[in-house]
Simulated assay, not measured.
Amino acid sequence: MQTHDTNQTLGAFEVLPFSRTCQIIWEEGDHVLIGVSPGNSYFNAERIAELADWAQRRFAEIDFVYADLHVEEMFAAFGYSREHAARRAAKELKAVRRRLVKGVGRAGPPEGSTRVRGLSEFGGNPVYQLQHRRVRHFMEHDDAFRKGCEDMVRYFLEAKVGDGEAPSEWQRRVCLDYIAAELPFFVDTPGILGVPSSVAAYHTVMPLTEVLYARGGGLRATRNQAYAVVRPEGLERPEGGVARAA
């Protein structure tokens, strides 16, 4: 697999591996995971096509994985009635899968293997199950990890609740369920998917990134798991944590 200098803009995207180890894994080019949230306007069909084209020229395998667990509960927590939340979740999930399939198709014949899957498809995967249990354990028993999860809750909910209004315990719990379903892929995508190494790519720094890639004990990303911010050229640089490897 051809490698590239991540100090340069790659096509329409700028790539910022989180650490030097992340850059090494990036350069191996084995696999990239692109996580997609339903209802996120960033992931329109054109952006997905650009990401797919970009990834296919740099990685042997590509997985677009969209969050389809706890979505109805999230809409209910945002204030929708149960009936409306169910309809909205079904509509958003149908739309996000359609955009992904359309975008990947527009990218042209892949040089590697490109897949589109929902989180729910991994419920029976033993490595996913193990990492999900570990995520839940550390949410309860590790202060640093719990704080990172709470930061993510605020990130998700700050635009959804009223100004100055703290999330309710129910809103917080639903949001933690949603986050916990995604986190196994930030910890051990290689183990879940059976690939030699993997880069989790997202367009901003996730609040838990500092924790997952820190030294020491606790829940940490596996040695062959990397994280990189991959964003369109010209977007404001994310603050802190992301290191350009020399």
Rank of each mutant, 00 (worst) to 15 (best):
V104D: 11
A214M: 01
T6C: 05
V195L: 00
Y227W: 13
K102T: 15
D30E: 07
Y227K: 10
W54L: 07
A245D: 08
G234I: 05
E46W: 15
R133L: 10
A49Q: 09
I34Y: 03
R172L: 02
V135T: 12
L208H: 09
A200V: 14
E150A: 10
A226M: 11
Q56H: 13
G29F: 01
C22K: 03
A166N: 13
R215L: 10
A52W: 01
A55Y: 06
I48W: 00
A200D: 02
R215V: 15
D142Y: 15
S37M: 06
V101I: 11
N44L: 04
F156I: 09
F75R: 08
V127Q: 04
Y213H: 14
E73V: 07
K147A: 09
E158L: 04
G123T: 08
I179K: 00
G241N: 06
G194M: 01
P110V: 04
R47E: 15
T9P: 05
T189Q: 01
G194Y: 02
G11W: 02
L235Q: 11
G29V: 01
Y178M: 05
T189M: 04
T6D: 03
E61Y: 01
G39S: 09
G123D: 03
Y42F: 08
S19W: 00
V195A: 00
R134G: 07
Y178V: 02
D142P: 10
V199A: 02
V199K: 02
Y128A: 03
C149A: 14
Y42C: 05
L130I: 05
V104Y: 03
V96R: 05
I48N: 10
R58N: 15
R88G: 07
H70V: 07
F78W: 14
R146Q: 09
V36C: 10
D63F: 01
T222S: 12
F138Y: 15
L130T: 10
S120K: 12
G162N: 12
R215E: 12
Q56P: 14
R133T: 15
I34L: 09
A76M: 10
G103F: 05
N40V: 06
P110Y: 04
E83Y: 06
E169A: 14
D53I: 13
D63L: 00
H203K: 07
H203A: 07
E46A: 07
V229W: 08
S198W: 00
L33Q: 03
C175R: 13
